[in-house]
C-alpha cells in the first residue's frame, strides 16, 4: 500500500508542479501575488474540455490551453495588473476581482456541472500489486518537460535574461534599454500560459468546474512558499514534498488530517525560512 501511495503522490506532485510553475515565474520575478492564478488553470481546463469535444487530440489541446490562458493573462495584465505595480494590497484586491469574474463567466458559458475528458492514453502499468495509470506517468513527464522548458527559457534566452535582470534591479534594467513594461506583460502572459497547461493536464485526471481555481491557487502558493520564491528546483521539490506528504500520510490517517498537519508545518516553515526552503541567499 505504501508503494502505491508514493506512486500516487508522484502524479499529484506533477499536477502541483505544473500549477505552481506559472506562480513561480510571476511571483518570483515580478513580486505579484495573482489571486486569479487558479482561474487561469480553470481557463486551461475548459479550453481542453472544449477542443477535446471538437475531436482535437490531447497534445493540440494542451498547446491551445497554453495559448488561451496566455492571452487571457496578457489581457489581465494590460487592463488591470499594470495599473497596480508596487501596490501589494491593491494587486491582491484587483486580482481577486478578476478571479471572481473569470469563475462566474465560466459558470455562465459552461454551466455549473463538472466536466471531464477521457485520458489521452488509457490502461495501467501493473507492477506486482501496484497499478500505475499510464496517464499518471504522462503527467509527471509533462511536468518535468515544462519545468525544463521554463528553465531553458529563463536561463538560455534573451527574454529570460531580461526577466532575471528586472527581478534583480528593475530601474537599472530600464536604464539599459530594456522596455520593462513590455517584459512585465510577457512574463505575466507566460506564467498564465503555464497555468493553462496545468489546467489541460488536470482535466483528464480529475474534473473541470467553474470554481476549481480557488483550491489550485492555494496549492500553488503553498508550493511556492515551501519551495522558494525564485527557484524552479525549489518548486519541483516543494511539489514533491507536499504531494508525497499528503498522499502517504493520508493513506494511514485521513487526507483531511494530513492536510491540516501540512498547513501547520508550512506555518512553522514560514516563521523560520520566510523565503522558502530553496530560496537563493540574498546579499
Amino acid at each position: 500500500m505504501l508503494i502505491s501511495q508514493v506512486v500516487n503522490g508522484l502524479s499529484a506532485a506533477g499536477i502541483l508542479l505544473l500549477a505552481a510553475l506559472g506562480a513561480v515565474i510571476i511571483f518570483g520575478n515580478m513580486g505579484i501575488i495573482n489571486l486569479a492564478h487558479g482561474d487561469l488553470i480553470m481557463v486551461g481546463a475548459y479550453t481542453t474540455v472544449f477542443y477535446s469535444g471538437q475531436g482535437l487530440p490531447f497534445g493540440v489541446c494542451v498547446v491551445l490551453s497554453f495559448v488561451t490562458a496566455a492571452v487571457v493573462g496578457l489581457l489581465i495584465e494590460v487592463v488591470v495588473i499594470k495599473r497596480f505595480y508596487g501596490q501589494l494590497n491593491n494587486t491582491l484586491l484587483a486580482s481577486y476581482a478578476v478571479s471572481i469574474i473569470l469563475g462566474q463567466a465560466a459558470k455562465l458559458i459552461f454551466g455549473p456541472a463538472t466536466r471531464t475528458v477521457p485520458p489521452a492514453i488509457a490502461g495501467s502499468l501493473v507492477i506486482g500489486d501496484v497499478y500505475i495509470p499510464y496517464y499518471n506517468i504522462l503527467i509527471v513527464a509533462i511536468a518535468l518537460l515544462m519545468t525544463f522548458l521554463t528553465w531553458a527559457l529563463m536561463y538560455k534566452t534573451v527574454l529570460g535574461l531580461k526577466i532575471r535582470a528586472i527581478s534583480q534591479n528593475r530601474q537599472m534594467t530600464e536604464c539599459l534599454r530594456v522596455d520593462t513594461a513590455k517584459i512585465d506583460t510577457l512574463t505575466f502572459a507566460l506564467g498564465s500560459g503555464l497555468a493553462g497547461v496545468a489546467g489541460a493536464v488536470i482535466v483528464p485526471a480529475r474534473v473541470a468546474t467553474p470554481l476549481m481555481g480557488a483550491s489550485y491557487m492555494l496549492d500553488s502558493f503553498i508550493t511556492v512558499v515551501v519551495g522558494g520564491f525564485d527557484s524552479l528546483l525549489g518548486a519541483g521539490a516543494g511539489a514533491a514534498l507536499i504531494s508525497e506528504f499528503t498522499s502517504v500520510l493520508g493513506g494511514f490517517i485521513s487526507e483531511v488530517v494530513a492536510r491540516i498537519i501540512l498547513l501547520l508545518l508550512v506555518i512553522v516553515l514560514i516563521r523560520f525560512r520566510p523565503r522558502g526552503l530553496f530560496a537563493k541567499e540574498r546579499r
Partner: peptide
Amino acid sequence: FSPYEISTLGVAYVPQGREIFADF
C-alpha cells in the same frame, strides 16, 4: 521621457552605488 526612451536615444547611466547585477 521614460528611462527606457532616454536610454534608447543613446544616453548611458552609471548610477550612484553602481547597481551591478549581483547575480550575473
